[in-house]
Design a protein around this nucleic acid. Structure first.
Length: 861
RNA sequence: GGGCGCGUAGCUCAGUGGGAGAGCGCUCGCCUCACACGCGAGAGGUCGCUGGUUCGAACCCAGCCGCGCCCACCA
């Protein structure tokens, strides 16, 4: 490296992410290390498929956290020398994208119907061209080492073929079928949606009591309903067979008000005699429960509410065409006119709403495509039970996953949209053709519906790699290793990927599923644009740097939801800066020809830091391998900041600045090199930048080898000895502070303690700013005796402080020691403790008690 | 209705059987030749409440009080 390059560090006392990040990222891209050649087997290689962001989306905190997690995994694997691919791509996001484009059209006063389907789809593709690259650039800003050269999109031709092939094959197996069935109709998007896209919301309604006259003329039956407009589609009345009030009426007939239809009174266990009047109107066309009851009793299914949310021709003429809300009022008014409403009461209950449009779900019977999940679920349950797919943390997510799969229900997969994978089914009269290609002959019409976006997402880990073709990419990278996500899409996506992966490839698509926090706004609310609670990761990168955001997100995240913590990001920013400055100290101070070497350790502190680095290496590897990202980040922070900076660098300075600095330079460089390596998965930019200043010819840190901990470098004795030095220095500093000693003045004293070599004694004196007299030195009274490990320091009089001030400190210290002694004695006097506690615990108690007694003795009373 | 989780320092959160931790904030002292985005020294918590198990409980068990999430077909 040119000497002036190193020299340039002298004045750069701040780490500047802006100056560094773009440049470093360009080096990675130019080196092509994010794009692996498709060689070797998936077992040797390492891959992760990114949860595809919506094509029109922008990076939010969830992406940023998950990106930080996945990138840490990917970078770790890459440094371990594995061929590594982080599969990149975007999702067409059916409804979301269609709605956005429709909104844009609306601004010009155009509807999609004005354009027609073909033109509309063109419009969406153009939209994608214009907006699709945004999130790619944002991932790059984060430092994500995705394989950008091999980007996929769920509407790409090859991917789309895979989707249709899956549909066709499942149809051949009879798993996918078309049926008239009760669906969740979303009047907002005018489409059916799946159960998972429905959310329950509490709603205040009125419960109406309505009298249905009996045909026999002997009175009436009173039912309770919150949806009087659906009365028009009633086809029976049900009562509990064990309900004495009504059992005699079973088999009788009631007359449906306003309509005049004859309704049989049927018996069904489902009816709760305690609720309402104990008599339930049955509306198979507009209520999921009634639908089930209706089917089991063979009742007629009448639909009075259409897909447009208005009453159909099946309703009496005066109500036809009315929107549901209006129809409700009209029906109630009509019933009142006939004197059939015998009461109303306010009623609060949960009502299904569309997750997408927010509108109240209209349950209705509709001809839709469904996917029966029971056969697919079985092996997906097994692989998790057998530990072939593991959730992290295991609890509660394994249980959550299994419970859902064990009670899985059919999945409505058709959507009444234009943007998506159009269902490969053609109809001609009663004929149905399902296949990859249109049928021969005239008069066939293709099903206008598209597939649920999650249907195509379920193929993501293998369709991105070229399945169903046996491509080199598929061979080299499938199955993938890790799937990282938040808990909200375990059912929507994770479980379905496992099911489809096993069904079509014979193998689960990944092995480890870390489930990370959902990041909430600092005030505990959901982070959301509409609430104004969102924090833009790009803003955070702009003001603190990508490394800072990555560190902060990893440090604040855990297994449960967390509030966004700006302090953690600040901590990351400070860490990057500290790293930068410690590096300047080492790089500018090290001997010119020095290179990193643990073997160069010559003093206790050298051996100590070398040993600590090996332990830290082991710890960091274990924590990252166990998907414990927050402890890993915080542990590395602590070791670097406290052990390396606060202690080792300070201990090393005298030798570094002496003429004989070869050994210490080598150890300092070793420590720096190791820290950069260990921190790289978390803070890739700053570490890569500093790495380029290390001596010697070296490639990118991003592909530098991740170290295996070297047991032979562990040095328990050095760790013990330096631990004593640290304790002694801290004790003496504390005294200095208590007596108000001038910061610049040394305090004279005498060191009487065992277990310190001359070098350590010198270090203690220097760091604590004491000057130790020779033991035989006589210089007036001893003002205080300060216990340190292995002995004590006698404080001698000086100008540096007022000894009176020290008395308070010493008294407090004595009190503290007496307290400790009392506690220890009490514990050891407890026979139960001595007899039942593990011997090493008792022994440790005894040792500590002795130590405290000796310390108190030295302190005097 | 069922299930899961949370309640620890002023704030945000770790810790899951043997003496209460981090970052930020706060107090005091320092521009000590890497860093004032810094250095040193501190203050601050009966670990939601009540019982129980244990020689020993923030940690295990039960109940209670608050808060949250997921699932669910009582009109």
């Amino acid at each position: 490296m040119p000497a002036d390059r190193l020299k340039s560090l002298e004045k750069r006392t701040r780490y500047d992410p802006h100056e560094v990040e773009g440049r470093v990222f360009a080096r990675w891209e130019e080196a092509g290390i994010f794009h692996p050649e498709p060689e070797g087997s998936a077992g040797e290689n390492y891959s992760i498929a990114v949860p595809p962001p919506n094509v029109t989306g922008v990076l939010h905190m969830g992406h940023a956290l998950n990106g930080s997690i996945q990138d840490a995994c990917i970078r770790l694997a890459r440094m371990r020398g594995r061929r590594t691919k982080w599969i990149f791509g975007t999702d067409h996001a059916g409804i979301g994208t269609q709605v956005k484009v429709e909104e844009a059209l609306a601004a010009d006063g155009v509807t999609k119907e004005d354009l027609g389907r073909e033109k509309f789809e063109e419009r969406v593709w153009r939209w994608r061209e214009e907006h699709g690259s945004l999130i790619t650039e944002q991932y790059k800003r984060l430092g994500a080492s995705l394989d950008y050269e091999d980007e996929r999109f769920t509407m790409d031709e090859a991917y789309a073929r895979a989707v249709l092939e899956v549909f066709v094959r499942l149809h051949e197996k009879g798993v996918v079928y078309r049926d008239n069935y009760m669906v969740n109709w979303d009047p907002g998007t005018r489409s059916a949606i799946s159960d998972l896209e429905v959310e329950q919301k509490q709603v205040e309604d009125s419960l109406y009591l309505v009298d249905y006259p009996l045909e026999s003329g002997s009175g009436s039956l009173t039912i309770a309903t919150v949806r009087p407009e659906t009365i028009l589609a009633d086809t029976a009345i049900a009562v509990n067979p064990a309900d004495d009030r009504y059992s005699r009426l079973i088999g009788e007939t009631a007359i449906l008000p306003l309509v005049g239809r004859r309704l049989e009174v049927i018996a069904d266990e489902y009816v709760d005699p305690e609720f309402g009047t104990g008599a339930l109107k049955i509306t198979p066309g507009h209520d999921p429960n009634d639908f089930e009851i209706g089917r089991s009793h063979g009742l007629e299914e009448i639909s009075v509410i259409g897909e447009d949310g208005r009453l159909t021709d099946a309703a009496p003429e005066r109500f036809r065409g009315m929107p549901v809300d209006e129809a409700r009022k009209a029906v109630v008014a009509a019933l009142r006119e006939e004197g059939l409403v015998s009461g109303t009461q306010p009623y609060v209950h949960d009502v299904p709403h569309s997750h997408r449009s927010g509108m109240r779900i209209e349950p209705l019977i509709s001809l839709q495509w469904f996917c029966d999940m029971t056969e697919l679920a079985r092996p997906a349950i097994e692989v998790v039970e057998e530990g072939k797919v593991r959730f992290h943390p295991d609890s509660p997510w394994t249980g959550v996953y299994l419970r859902w799969l064990r009670e899985i229900r059919p999945w409505c997969i058709s959507r009444q949209l234009w943007w998506g994978h159009q269902i490969p089914a053609w109809y001609r009269g009663d004929e149905v053709h399902v296949g990859m290609e249109p049928p021969d002959g005239d008069g066939w019409e293709r099903d206008p519906d598209v597939l649920d976006t999650w249907f195509s997402s379920a193929l993501w880990p293998f369709a991105t790699l070229g399945w169903p073709e046996d491509t080199p990419e598929y061979g080299a990278f499938y199955p993938t290793d890790v799937l990282s996500t938040a808990r909200d899409i375990i059912f929507l996506w994770v479980a379905r990927m496992v099911m489809f992966g096993i069904e079509f490839t014979g193998e689960p698509p990944f092995t480890d599923v870390p489930i990370h926090s959902v990041i909430q706004a600092p005030d505990g609310r959901r982070m959301s644009k509409s609430l104004g609670t969102g924090i833009d990761p790009l803003d955070e990168i702009e003001s603190h740097g990508a490394d800072a955001l990555r560190f902060g997100l990893l440090a604040m995240s855990s297994t449960q939801d967390v509030r966004y913590s700006p302090q953690r990001v600040k901590q990351g920013e400070d860490l990057a800066n500290k790293l930068w400055n410690a590096s300047r100290l080492i790089l500018l101070g090290a001997a010119e020809d020095a290179s990193p070497s643990a073997a160069a350790a010559e003093t206790i502190e050298d051996r100590w830091i070398v040993s600590r680095l090996e332990r830290t290496t082991r710890e960091a590897s274990e924590l990252l391998d166990g998907f414990h990202f927050s402890p890993a980040a915080l542990r590395l922070y602590e070791v670097f900041w406290s052990e390396i900076c606060d202690w080792y660098l300070e201990l090393a300075k005298p030798r570094l600045y002496s003429g004989d600095n070869a050994g210490v330079s080598a150890v300092l460089l070793h420590a720096l090199e190791r820290v950069l390596v260990l921190l790289h998965p978390v803070m890739p930019f700053a570490t890569e930048e500093i790495w380029s200043y290390l001596p010697g010819e070296r490639g990118l840190l991003a592909v530098a080898p991740w170290p295996e901990p070297d047991e032979s470098l562990l040095d328990t004795e050095a760790e013990r000895q330096l631990g004593q030095v640290i304790e002694a220095v801290t004790e003496l500093r504390s005294y200095r502070d208590a007596v108000g000693a001038k910061a610049s003045a040394d305090i004279p004293g005498r060191l009487h303690a065992d277990g310190y070599d001359d070098a350590s004694r010198g270090q203690i004196a220097r760091l604590a700013r004491f000057s130790f007299m020779p033991e035989e030195h006589e210089n007036g009274d001893v003002l205080a005796t300060l216990p340190i490990p292995g002995g004590a320091v006698q404080v001698l009089p000086s100008e540096a402080f007022d000894p009176e001030e020290g008395e308070k400190k010493l008294t407090a210290k004595r009190d503290q020691l007496r307290g400790e002694i009392e506690r220890g004695e009490k514990k050891l006097a407890n026979k139960g403790f001595v007899q039942k506690a593990p011997p090493e615990v008792v022994e440790e108690e005894r040792r500590k008690l002795e130590e405290y007694r000796r310390a108190l003795e030295r302190l005097g009373s």
